[in-house]
Design a protein around this nucleic acid. Structure first.
Lengths: 183, 183
DNA sequence: GTCTATATTCTGATAGAC
DNA sequence: GTCTATCAGAATATAGAC
């Protein structure tokens, strides 16, 4: 492809990066197309040259944000990190607050059911990917009950720790879940 | 108080009941004041005689919906139900779908962080109440790590089972969490 | 207290110049 | 492809009649 369509791809990537971070932090409804385009250094009118609708952007942005969060999470860890090592990083207080490595799985969990199938499919795929990482990237098709419990303790625990308005309870939730994953 | 203010209280209760069910099912942003008032058999203009803002309504409606969900959950159970018995009912497939006894703790979890302190306080109080129920209504001030893990497996598990667009995975999540609470 | 009517703001999406 | 300008609809909140 020529340099022109390459430039378009870069622009689209910039929009997706901005959207991923904004949506993960604020949710679907509190982020406007204006906000996303402004964060990407563009204006509203250019949006529809890249995406057909806000919902379509949301679906793609969830994947983008998940890849980013995954990279930041696993970066300092070994090639095949243990669930304990993952949990120790994932369930950190900074992550429960508005840290830099927000996980869309935890921050958008209850928002997904309200959206269309395209969005729900994207979220489901990402969640399964995280589960397979917890299972050590096995080739097994089935996810074991233990892996699913670890998944819930991580994603659900982080979500509740973020929701709650009591820092002490928030910390206790994170500690309890980390301990439960290890056991 | 006279029958007049008593009638006002009944009207307010009707609004709160409608709001509790609508908000829990659809979230904060997808429910308008119009929707709530219409469901209560009133029109928009009457709203501000009972509540100061939509956010204030939301905070109160979360408590109302939680009480209702709690009653429906514990109704057929013994006076001091075991966590196993609670989990068996709470993590049922009907509850993950749009059953009648929607739990605002699970369905609104990631919506709460976006709202004001009044809302977050209400949610936090309700969550602590559910945790104390799981702990057998002890008088202990502290919540044990095990109770908090059970709380996350129930609330987080139901939230993820609802988010996911894959019925088989949804069922596996519910089963795994129920099994984990029992163990 | 409840109604109708409306002020105001914001949003997603589109049209047309460059 | 990106811009400015705008449409059309929806939302919160308020004003005033009854």
């Amino acid at each position: 492809m020529g340099w022109k369509s390459e430039h378009k791809q870069q622009t689209k990537a910039r929009i997706l990066s901005a959207a991923g971070q904004l949506f993960t932090r604020l949710g679907y409804e509190r982020v406007s197309i204006d906000d996303v385009m402004a964060a990407a250094g563009l204006t509203r009118g250019a949006f529809y040259a890249h995406f057909g609708s806000k919902s379509e952007l949301y679906a793609e942005a969830i994947v983008t944000a998940a890849i980013r969060a995954r990279n930041l999470l696993l970066e300092p860890l070994s090639e095949s990190p243990s669930v304990d090592a993952i949990a120790a990083r994932y369930l950190s207080p900074e992550r429960a607050r508005d840290g830099d490595a927000r996980c869309p799985l935890a921050f958008l969990a209850t928002d997904i059911h309200q959206r269309d199938d395209q969005v729900r499919d994207a979220y489901t795929r990402v969640l399964k990917g995280f589960a397979r990482t917890l299972a050590g990237n096995t080739t097994a098709v089935e996810l074991s009950p233990q892996t699913l419990r670890q998944l819930v303790l991580l994603v659900g625990g982080l979500a509740l720790a973020r929701a709650v308005n009591d820092p002490a309870l928030s910390q206790c939730l994170l500690d309890a879940c980390r301990q439960g994953v290890n056991g």
